[in-house]
């Protein structure tokens, strides 16, 4: 089945525009009348992934692929990558810099939140090359 595919550029350290790609994705799904809960989950995960790119990763893209059965959200960056993915997934684990903690980030809850709010989460990372996060959400109604 064919799908609708859109992609947005996200820049490292750009706190001013961080979140805009997720807002676009959210609005696309809203205008297609996806159920509110799915839209909410996609938006939350998109925002967490976008913030991780901005804070820890490098320049990259957020893209979304939508058909009537599911939404696939992918965030890929060309940053330092994640050395130990299992460790990064643990609640409370964070390497966020002090200045980001002062802004209210760095609770180490982003990845666990993405896991909780998506139906499938897959992270691949090559240290020195970048990080690729892929999440799937099923449209249940």
């Amino acid at each position: 089945m064919t799908s609708i595919h859109k992609s947005y550029h996200v820049a490292k350290n750009d706190f001013i525009h961080a979140g805009e790609a997720s807002i676009h994705v959210k609005n696309l799904l809203k205008s297609m009348n996806y159920n509110q809960d799915l839209v909410r989950r996609v938006a939350i995960c998109g925002y967490e992934a976008e913030m991780n790119l901005v804070m820890h990763g490098g320049d990259g893209e957020l893209s979304v692929d939508v058909n009537s059965e599911r939404v696939i959200l992918e965030v890929a960056d060309r940053g330092p990558g994640i050395l130990d993915i299992e460790l990064a997934m643990q609640e409370g684990y964070s390497t966020a810099k002090e200045e980001y903690r002062e802004m209210g980030f760095g609770a180490g809850m982003g990845l666990p939140n993405m896991k909780k709010n998506s139906d499938a989460l897959k992270i691949t990372s090559e240290p020195g090359q970048g990080t690729h996060v892929s999440m799937t959400f099923y449209n249940k109604g």
């Binding site: 064919t2 609708i4 696309l28 809203k30 205008s31 297609m32 009348n33 939508v66 058909n67 009537s68």
Partner: peptide, 14 residues
Amino acid sequence: QEKTFSFEEMRLIE
């Protein structure tokens, strides 16, 4: 409420 579109309509719009 704002008007929404079906999947096919949205593809056409795109």
